[in-house]
Design a protein around this nucleic acid. Sequence first.
DNA 1: ATGATTTTGTGACGATCGTCACAGGACAAA
DNA 2: TTTGTCCTGTGACGATCGTCACAAAATCAT
Lengths: 190, 190
Amino acid sequence: MEALLRYIRSLTSFSTENWALLQPALTQKTFRKKEFLLKEGTVCRSLFFIVKGYCKSYYEIDGIVKNTGFFFENEIATNVSSFGSGQKSEFNIAACEPLTAIIIDKEKLFEAAKNSIEIETLGRHCIRLFATKQEEFANLFQLYTPQERLEYIEARYPALLQRVSLSQLASFLGVTRETLSRIRKRRSQV
Amino acid sequence: MEALLRYIRSLTSFSTENWALLQPALTQKTFRKKEFLLKEGTVCRSLFFIVKGYCKSYYEIDGIVKNTGFFFENEIATNVSSFGSGQKSEFNIAACEPLTAIIIDKEKLFEAAKNSIEIETLGRHCIRLFATKQEEFANLFQLYTPQERLEYIEARYPALLQRVSLSQLASFLGVTRETLSRIRKRRSQV
DNA sequence: ATGATTTTGTGACGATCGTCACAGGACAAA
DNA sequence: TTTGTCCTGTGACGATCGTCACAAAATCAT
């Protein structure tokens, strides 16, 4: 739980009273590898603050898995649009390793926020971070080639490469695993 | 100004007192075609609510313009990450037509939000909408081929096609104008 | 240690894309 | 009308990617 408080205080000033107010919204839970945090077709009613392990978001289209994001320790995983609008999620979030997360319940969070502008502000910061990350990855695809995308991840998210297999990474980069393999080969030959 | 109030009330409940509190943060301004709303290298200190006309966000990399978004009437254009973090913007926003916008000043908005949880909540909703749209377009690139992306825009944003030239659209879809032309040809021949 | 499963690399081939070059059409200004 | 500019289409060619197939390497469970 202390990890979450540290995370919050890195975003915005947050009193111990507000931390107490927030407690009813928090539950700690563990997930086995491949277990769902969020399943396609269900409504997302939680934020998942990752304490240990990592998970991924992915679409399954015509039986093919397409990874859209990886989430590691001290990050929040969720489906912003489903969480915000109450509509069904179009993608899954699943643990890639045994995972421990603090689940922040939407309804109880909103109740707490009604009486605390600091909590409301915290919510805004969380969404802002999410929007920034989405923007970063949207640009990654709109602006760069697959090879440049790989180099961007290598430079900016080296930890991701350490923990995610090349097949999983290829799916995330929007190419087949064969293509990723050839990009790596091409590059080493130059 | 009424358009902005209608926009706000479509997002969240908003009293006339809060509307009055918000007034100091608002300025109306017109832009000529090709004029900058936000220039690369400067910090984004405003939200631009578009009353009439439209604008685009774009990167200029090695002299090549890459469009990343179009913003029309009753939408808010901004650079969320620059607006939120205070860092310099890496892209431009420029009017594509003569444009009228209500400029919402960041500092004065934050002052107003300090004393009003309704305004703070409004800010959260604005960012949420932005995050949702970013997510939508990030997925468009991660999941679909150029042809499927075109079909998605045709189905979901037909108005965009009416107002944006094919060259501009090609840049937005992440392909050259020649490729977009051939996609359209291929499709009509089937 | 052994066998099964997963992950990665690679060759062949066709499809798609980017680049360069050029031509025709739409539109606005003189 | 004429000129100039911008937008769109298309042909040629090389580069890159996806698909299918198979093999090697690494990992996991027993």
